[in-house]
Design a protein around this nucleic acid. Structure first.
Lengths: 111, 111
DNA sequence: CAGGATCCACAAGGATACTG
DNA sequence: CAGTATCCTTGTGGATCCTG
């Protein structure tokens, strides 16, 4: 079933490519893992976990994750602002699969 | 078990990060899928499947995959040269996991 | 606090030419 | 055929400053 995509040079249309596109970039996976572990997390909290990320990059990543419906953004209209992020059901189901990659990596690390 | 990595900002040491590092880049997955589907493939054959890849990029990707022991390179010392690539056992075991991502993508594609 | 705006550095990959 | 060598383009993310 993959073969026909390869022969047509349409790899970008495979489910695999699609899945990876959702988590492309350097930080998205860490964000997702943070949300998985800590459930509900605020912007600056995430920033601390990610350590070296800039506001702009974090902001962009969160927007893309939200656009792909992997996370849910909840804004409280107050001063100072407060925004919470959490996994959506869709995000959680993706994490289950990604966790398999984690397990494989643990078991197959070299040297 | 992931939590401690996050708290120490050592996400790069997780199995997940390791797994993804093996298939980083734009073409490695397509290469792996080609090898999975067609078993034994030669350099220029791969080039045709990948369509728009350059010699240099393909060459680099193959070298990295080989260095990570995901594929096996077999060279025939003859003129003209002939080199065959195929998946290693390790590569095949990784593909099983990656296929799960493919399935998830198929089932969770949006619109 | 949670970003937006702007400018910039760097590495991955493309283009092209060449070779054992 | 299966690459290597060299130069060049581009996108991702970093740095810095600003704001409701």
């Amino acid at each position: 079933m993959i073969k026909k995509y390869i022969e047509n040079s349409n790899f970008e249309e495979t489910g695999f490519y699609y899945t990876l596109s959702l988590i492309s970039g350097k930080h998205k996976m860490i964000i997702l893992y943070c949300l998985m572990e800590f459930e509900v997390v605020r912007f600056n909290e995430l920033k601390r976990y990610l350590k070296k990320i800039t506001d702009k990059t974090l902001s962009n990543n969160l927007k893309e994750l939200e656009a792909n419906h992997l996370i849910i953004r909840k804004e409280y209209p107050q001063i100072p602002p407060k925004v919470e992020y959490r996994l959506s059901d869709r995000g959680r189901s993706l994490m289950k699969v990604l966790d398999q990659l984690c397990v494989w990596g643990e078991n197959n690390r070299e040297e």
